[in-house]
C-alpha cells in the first residue's frame, strides 16, 4: 500500500470508530457525563465546601482537572478494549487482517478512535464543570499535551488488553482491579503532598499520578510532580506500550493462528 492508500485505510478505521461512538452515545458519552456530574455535586459542592482550599484553589477547582483526566483515561481505555475485542469476538477483525493494511495503520486507527472518545468525554466533563466552578488554563500547551499523551498511553494499554482477552470478563478485569484503584490513588481527589510517608513515596510508582499532576499543572499551575519527570513517564510509557502493541499485532498474537 502506498502512503495515500494507507491514509484512506486509517481514515476508514477512525471514521468507523467515531460512528460507533456516536451510534451508541448512550453507552459512550452519557454515562461519564452523569457520573462526573454526581462527583461535582457530592465531592465538589457538598463535601468540598467544608474542606477549604488546596494549593490556593477551592476543592472543586482542585479536583476538576483530576476528574477530567480520570474520564479521559477510563474512556480511552474502555473504547479500545470494547471495540477491538468486539471485533475479535464477532470475527470481523478478519476484515482488516485479510486486507493489505500494515499493522501500524490498524493500531493507529484504533488508538485515534479511542483518543477521540477520551477527548470528547473530557470536553463534556470540562463543560459540565463550568456549571459548578470557575476554571482557568494557566498553560494551554501543557494542558493539551498532557491530556493527549495520557489518552494515547491508556489507549495503547487497552489495545494490549484486548489483544490478550479471550472473553468479555478479560476486558473488565483490568479496569476494575487495576485502572480504577490507580486512578483513585493517583491524586485525583487529593494532593500527594498531604500523604504521610511511605504512602507519598509509594504513590510515585503510580503512573496516573504523573498524568493528573501534569494536567492540573497546565490548568491551575498546581501540580504535585515537576513537569520534566511527568513528561518522561508519559513519553516512556507511550513508547514501551506502543512497541508492545505493534509487536503483538505484527506477530498476530491472539489474532492469527
Amino acid at each position: 500500500m502506498n502512503a495515500r492508500e494507507q491514509w484512506v485505510a486509517l481514515g476508514t478505521i477512525v471514521r468507523r470508530e467515531v460512528m460507533r461512538i456516536l451510534r451508541i452515545w448512550g453507552q459512550t458519552l452519557m454515562p461519564p457525563a452523569i457520573t462526573m456530574t454526581l462527583y461535582f455535586l457530592i465531592f465538589g459542592t457538598l463535601i468540598g465546601s467544608r474542606i477549604g482550599t488546596l494549593h490556593g484553589y477551592t476543592y472543586m477547582q482542585y479536583i476538576t482537572p483530576g476528574l477530567v483526566m480520570m474520564s479521559v483515561i477510563t474512556n480511552s481505555y474502555g473504547n479500545i478494549t470494547s471495540s477491538f475485542f468486539g471485533a475479535k469476538f464477532g470475527r470481523y477483525v478478519e476484515e482488516m487482517l485479510v486486507s493489505p493494511m500494515p499493522p501500524l495503520v490498524i493500531l493507529g486507527g484504533y488508538v485515534t478512535g479511542a483518543v477521540l472518545r477520551g477527548l470528547l468525554v473530557g470536553a463534556i466533563v470540562l463543560a459540565l464543570s463550568l456549571f459548578f466552578t470557575h476554571l482557568t488554563v494557566v498553560n494551554p500547551w501543557v494542558t493539551a499535551s498532557s491530556v493527549l499523551l495520557a489518552s494515547v498511553v491508556f489507549s495503547l494499554a487497552g489495545f494490549i488488553n484486548a489483544v490478550y482477552a479471550r472473553k468479555f470478563d478479560d476486558i473488565a478485569l483490568v479496569p476494575t482491579f487495576v485502572l480504577t484503584p490507580l486512578t483513585y490513588l493517583g491524586g485525583v481527589f487529593y494532593s500527594v503532598d498531604q500523604l504521610p510517608e511511605p504512602w507519598r513515596g509509594i504513590s510515585h510508582a503510580n503512573p496516573i499520578l504523573y498524568m493528573v499532576s501534569a494536567f492540573r499543572d497546565g490548568m491551575l499551575g498546581a501540580g504535585d510532580i515537576a513537569l520534566g519527570p511527568a513528561y518522561a513517564v508519559m513519553l516512556g510509557l507511550m513508547l514501551v506500550l506502543g512497541w508492545v502493541a505493534i509487536t503483538l499485532l505484527r506477530r498476530g498474537v491472539g489474532l492469527r493462528s
Binding site: 476508514t12 476484515e95 486486507s99 493489505p100 493494511m101
Partner: peptide
C-alpha cells in the same frame, strides 16, 4: 465501503 477503505480505495 469500509472494506474498500481497508484496501485504500477512496470513498
Amino acid at each position: 465501503i469500509n472494506q474498500a477503505g481497508f484496501y485504500g480505495i477512496p470513498r
